[in-house]
Amino acid sequence: MEKPPAPQRFHLHLVSDSTGETLEAMAKAALVQFEEARAEKHIWPMVRTARQMERIMEFIEDRPGLVMYTLVNEDIRRELTRHCSALNIQHVSVLDPVISALGQFLGAQSRGLPGRQHEMDRDYFDRIDALHYTMAHDDGQMAHDLLSADIILVGVSRTSKTPTSIYLANKGFKTANIPFVPNAVLPPELYGPLNALVVGLTASPDRLVQVRTNRLRSMREAPSTAYVDMEAVKLEVLACRRLCSDNHWPVIDVTRRSIEETAAAILRLHSAREASSHQKEKE
């Protein structure tokens, strides 16, 4: 049997004039496409002066690799590209194609201000407001106040309702989550007129039993209740699906989804709902 190829290790330098979060996320998204690659990341945030750039380039010269950057200041960019070219180090500005496309589409020129996405503008405060709402409406709390929600998650236990809600809140969506418990009455507000998208979350019984059993063991509780009984869990999942079907709520199976993937699916449903409402208003 052939041995799998050894991981390809390399230095990856991420240079930003802001926090570097955008750059790091883009690098992470690209790296997953190369399974054999093992990047040793060097993150250089808040680079605002030529002197800072010189020190960084001294480090990069000793550890050459790929340089990815988000620098809007032309002087700082010029320093980086000059040094990289002299050292024959590959470098790429990851936002240039996007900014260029936006400029062409809008017929305008970018303002070239670093860190604008992190300013405390209206969007920032909307996200903070959404996070406060979401934390206050976690696990069925304050169910009387669902009219302000953008998204409501209804799901069986251990389907990552809370982390998914927080992820959506960081995107600016006020998200409440309500647990589905067999034979328990759900808040009547859930069936009233709502502005929110209601989504059901389920998972395969096998997966739920596994996760719940591990949860009980970590809490030093005996895993011998209906909470982890396979037949009971199957009926629980079926009942949750039936509830969602009766109320025309879309259902997402999170068995093989990460929190990010679940949130992306929810946001697609939300966008489709918004588009449908907009179309009806036009008609």
Rank of each mutant, 00 (worst) to 15 (best):
A108K: 15
D145N: 09
M142P: 12
P114S: 01
Q141V: 10
D129H: 12
L87M: 15
R82M: 05
D121P: 15
H137Y: 05
H83E: 01
R111F: 05
L113I: 15
R82I: 01
S85W: 08
S93T: 04
V92D: 00
G112S: 03
L87G: 08
H144G: 03
Y124Q: 02
D96H: 11
H137S: 03
H83L: 01
D138F: 10
D126H: 09
T134Y: 08
L146N: 00
D138S: 04
C84E: 06
C84F: 02
D129Q: 08
R122M: 13
L146D: 01
S93C: 01
H118Q: 03
D126G: 14
M135T: 13
D129W: 04
H118N: 05
Y124G: 06
A143T: 11
G140C: 02
A136H: 14
A108D: 10
D138Q: 12
H83G: 03
N88A: 11
R122P: 11
L87H: 12
Q141E: 12
Q141Y: 02
S100L: 02
S100E: 10
A86S: 15
Q104H: 09
D126F: 06
Q104F: 00
H118T: 02
G115Y: 12
G103T: 06
H144F: 13
S110A: 14
S93G: 04
A101H: 04
L87W: 14
M120E: 00
L147N: 13
Q104P: 10
Q90P: 09
R122I: 07
R111N: 04
I99W: 05
R111P: 13
G140T: 00
H144S: 08
H137G: 04
S93Q: 04
R111A: 14
A143H: 09
V94N: 05
V94M: 09
S148W: 06
